[in-house]
Write a protein that binds this DNA or RNA. Structure first.
Lengths: 187, 187
DNA sequence: GTCTATACCCAGATAGAC
DNA sequence: GTCTATCTGGGTATAGAC
């Protein structure tokens, strides 16, 4: 990887974290360049507009998700086990969820308010997960219901993340995750 | 009601709608005063800071909720019927949810990112509903589980609202609302 | 109470030296 | 590639005339 690409990647990683913690609109170029110890002028050499960074962050997130899903596929052949891997994301990142909610959900919520054309791009983050979830339900024998089941599981996770964040209540998250595991076993 | 109070109320109603549609940070004083055909200078006569308006909006929302809940209590004596009234909010405002999500959830999500001291105030909007829900579960015979059931129902609604908004999919909302009705009947 | 004018700040974005 | 300096716009908030 060339030096320019490395720096670009660092910028995207930093922007990703700041968008998650502070929101997109509330994160300025200065926030990002300061966090990197880089001047604003230099920053503009890599990204011309704020929307460019947003696109790069979304694209990176989707790519990371695809990698995770591929790993889960190889580690776990049982669809139920795969669905449980999805739920284990909640418990594994419970501290971050308590503080900042879900990165996907909060970004989509924010962009929806900004009447941002990039909401479609942002919702692609969900779609990567959703298609994979739908696939697992199909492997369990569901056909027409597979799509709505995938949306159901997305929604369950989002609701848990939002309430956990609002009430700063990790115990609730743990309880709900356990309930979903039971639900998966009963499928 | 005095003239000043009427105007104050109009401002709060307008701010409420704009915060819902555009978000708090993305709504400026100009947006609100323009929508009211009022000058910015005059606007400051009623509200000194943006946080003052936010407080007023939150307070108004809580008050409206308390009124709704009192009405449901008087209209419906069966706890299951009351819980269904809660769910019927989803289907009744499905168009708005599809466009803008849930007003409570999106505001709490946003304020959480702004490290806003008023997140506690904002979460009070949830708490008004939650305490009432907990009460209904207690009437159904649940004791210790009543609190977690109330949080569960809040989370279900929030997840549905977020996914409905992200995917602009009212059919999903309708399906999930029907599923929750079944769940209530089986309690 | 209602208005205009304005101070002030911070954000996104650009120009150009090195 | 990296920097400093700067432009421009929009936001919060205030002053003061009417």
């Amino acid at each position: 990887m060339q030096k320019g690409e490395v720096i670009r990647k660092k910028i995207v990683d930093t922007a990703d974290a700041l968008f998650y913690q502070q929101g997109f609109a509330h994160t300025s170029f200065s926030d990002i360049s300061d966090a990197l110890g880089m001047s604003k002028g230099n920053f503009y050499y890599y990204f011309k507009t704020k929307d460019d960074i947003l696109d790069a962050v979304i694209e990176k997130r989707c790519e990371m998700t695809r990698q995770d899903l591929a790993q889960w596929d190889s580690q776990e052949s049982d669809p139920r086990g795969r669905l449980k891997k999805y739920i284990s994301m909640l418990t594994e990142s419970q501290e971050m969820i308590e503080k900042h909610g879900c990165p996907l959900g909060s970004m989509c919520t924010e962009l929806s308010k900004l009447h941002h054309e990039q909401l479609n791009n942002a919702s692609e983050q969900f779609e990567v997960y959703r298609e994979w979830l739908e696939q697992q339900f199909k492997l369990l024998g569901y056909k027409k219901e597979a799509r709505i089941l995938s949306l159901h599981l997305l929604a369950r996770g989002q609701g848990i993340a939002l309430i956990t964040n609002t009430y700063s209540d990790k115990l609730f998250l743990q309880h709900e995750a356990a309930e979903i595991i039971k639900w998966i076993d009963a499928l």
